[in-house]
């Protein structure tokens, strides 16, 4: 279980707290949705859960123990895949970052062999997001945090990516947090919805 207990975070001592005392549990195989307007800390919470940021108060636990150093079983997928890859590396090298490339996995995500010799700017946003997902899925991944991963993609590409991902989630019993402003998408994907970031006023 991915669990956070009593998390409080602010970027600056003098700034107000972005969120306070947040508790969240995600079970393996469970897809949890987190909707809410922009600018309220959804992405920051995602970064705390995946170990990019340390909370001032509270802990993040993976199956009872703190996030390990090295390969993280909690992976964060970002909204803009072009910012999540090294622009000087070709796709093969990027995929290798996640471990040995699994051909079956690549096939499920529609990754073509000739993409491997290309550079990130030679792929479209949807293609690059597939690369980022496969890179994350290759490792010892158990929990996936999806921060608006398809909001800049057209509906067809979005549906295609999620269908590939849903298969994988089912097969490996991954726990997933879906962050999106699209309530219809969350309703489609998630078995449970948490409301930390709504109607808190401006």
């Amino acid at each position: 279980m991915l669990e956070c207990r009593g998390i409080t975070f602010s970027y600056d001592k003098n700034h107000k707290k972005l969120f306070q005392d947040i508790d969240l549990k995600i079970n393996p195989g469970e897809i949890v949705g987190m909707p809410g307007p922009s600018g309220q800390g959804k992405s920051t919470l995602a970064k705390v859960l995946s170990g990019y940021l340390q909370p001032q108060v509270g802990t993040v636990l993976v199956d009872g123990s703190p996030l390990p150093a090295g390969k993280n079983p909690v992976q964060l997928i970002f909204q803009n895949p072009e910012h999540a890859v090294n622009p000087h590396w070709n796709v093969r090298k990027i995929l290798n970052e996640g471990g040995i490339i699994n051909p079956e996995l690549s096939k499920n995500f529609g990754i073509q062999n000739f993409w491997l010799d290309r550079f990130p700017h030679e792929l479209s946003g949807g293609e690059l997001q597939r690369i980022c997902l496969v890179r994350a899925l290759c490792s010892n991944l158990r929990y996936l945090i999806c921060d608006e991963i398809t909001s800049m993609l057209d509906a067809l590409t979005q549906a295609g990516i999620w269908h590939s991902l849903l298969q994988e989630i089912e097969k490996r019993q991954l726990g997933v947090l879906v962050i999106s402003h699209d309530n219809a998408l969350i309703a489609r994907l998630c078995s449970r919805v948490v409301h930390f970031f709504e109607d808190t006023g401006k």
């Binding site: 995500f109 529609g110 949807g126 293609e127 509906a155 067809l156 549906a159 699209d182 219809a184 998408l185």
Partner: peptide, 22 residues
């Protein structure tokens, strides 16, 4: 038609073949 059907508010269907590079 496929684009419209793929919306989460409609049937959220994905295309029969996986996306290849245009």
């Amino acid at each position: 038609t496929a684009l419209w059907a793929a919306l989460p508010t409609n049937s959220f269907t994905s295309p029969p073949s996986q996306a290849t590079t245009p």
